[in-house]
Design a protein around this nucleic acid. Sequence first.
DNA 1: CCATGAATTCATAGATTACTTAAATCACCC
DNA 2: GGGTGATTTAAGTAATCTATGAATTCATGG
Lengths: 114, 114
Amino acid sequence: MNDLRNSKPLYVAKAELFKSLGHPARIRILELLVAGEMSVSNLLAATGLEPSSLSQHLNVVKHTGLVQSSRAGNIVTYRVTDPSVGEFLAAARSVLATTLGRARQTLEDLVGPA
Amino acid sequence: MNDLRNSKPLYVAKAELFKSLGHPARIRILELLVAGEMSVSNLLAATGLEPSSLSQHLNVVKHTGLVQSSRAGNIVTYRVTDPSVGEFLAAARSVLATTLGRARQTLEDLVGPA
DNA sequence: CCATGAATTCATAGATTACTTAAATCACCC
DNA sequence: GGGTGATTTAAGTAATCTATGAATTCATGG
């Protein structure tokens, strides 16, 4: 059900956590879910993924405990398990912001401003 | 030099960022560097990795802009490019904490406390 | 200039991951 | 019970990633 359980060195669990977000489709899925729970069919429409592909990606993030699902009749709804997931994504955004800014800066240092 | 530059959808860049930390060795390396800059030979000793392997992993995190390096004579020193990298790692730790706690809780809900 | 230590690059075999298509489940309604 | 829409599972192939050992670069000191 959840693969980040004990009996694993912490840095392995942490690596699996990062890896589970190491795919564009899963990033898009998580950003949607951070904004609010969503059914598979809505995710399907929002992402444009193949149903089987979406399901597989959802399974990956479910295994690392980032999301949960529940079924109501025919419809399966996914949601993030904890607000910390949103903060995790936000932290990535912040790294990216300074990292991209720094790349631009370094470039200007080397070749001068545009 | 840096692969998270523009001309790439944001979610792709973000996925690459996560992926670059999606390996136990790179997690260990980054946690060491977050605590302070380090030479390659010190990283070698601290991690026990093969030199070529360490170098390749360092290259991965350098490409995503998480770390920088500088050479002083024979010795190359790596450091994180920005404090936000440390916060990123911390955010992961926090997700892991609630995620593992929740897994334990869910288990207890199902089978009763140990 | 050659030897040496430090670090990186290269090449390849082996393992993991992702995409695609088809088949299977599952819950519901007639 | 059969049909239908929603979702998941399976299986195969293609693509990507990792580890390893040999070769290479780079800077220094003799």
